[in-house]
């Protein structure tokens, strides 16, 4: 595979850095519906030594030289950036859960009644909204080349956080 790849356009390939592992990368470029773990390592030992130089051989430098190389280069991300971003969303959802649970605990300690039931429902709703937001964003991050976060998502996440704070101020004892 790698010898065949370098034959026709040897000059283009050697123009980039680490051409051997890049040819290996073309193996593992199908990243969509297949078994996730398998496709990442389909290129053999390629991913590990390359993760450090992710910034240097970005898609920009690839697109400057040869479009064919760009396709193989960008469809698998050596830095696992979408994965890390997805985990960051998970951590944030977990933090939101903790804050929401503390808010609900606060209401329950204050006493029962219809108003406290409504307050509990509101806090749960805020958490569910954040959960849905994070889920939708994580689905979008599954794309080969995820688009930047829309400003609406940022505003909605900020809205959930501020809603919890306002809620907390309202139910302070």
């Amino acid at each position: 595979m790698s010898a065949g790849g370098r034959g026709p356009d040897g000059t283009d390939e050697s123009g980039g850095t680490g051409d051997g592992s890049r040819a290996g990368g073309s193996h593992g470029r199908i990243r969509g519906p297949g078994p996730g773990g398998g496709s990442w390592h389909g290129g053999g030992p390629g991913p590990d030594p390359r993760s450090g130089q992710a910034g240097g051989t970005g898609p920009d430098s690839g697109s400057a030289s040869a479009p064919g190389v760009t396709a193989t280069e960008t469809e698998r991300d050596p830095g696992l950036q979408p994965e890390r971003t997805r985990l960051a969303w998970r951590r944030t959802t977990l933090s939101c859960a903790v804050a929401a649970v503390l808010a609900i605990r606060q209401v329950l300690h204050a006493g029962g009644g219809a108003s406290s039931a409504i307050a509990v429902a509101l806090a749960a709703l805020v958490f569910l909204a954040f959960l849905r937001l994070a889920h939708l964003r994580m689905v979008r991050l599954g794309a080969a080349r995820p688009a930047a976060m829309p400003a609406g998502v940022a505003l909605a996440a900020a809205g959930c956080t501020i809603a919890l704070a306002v809620f907390g101020a309202a139910v302070l004892r």
Binding site: A54, G55, G58, P59, D60, D77, G79, Q81, P82, R84, T85, A88, W89, R91, T92, L141, R145, P146, A147, A148, M149, A154, A157
Partner: peptide
Amino acid sequence: DYRFSLANERTFLA
């Protein structure tokens, strides 16, 4: 580069 945008997003989430 989308990776920079994702890094920015992670900073936002932090």
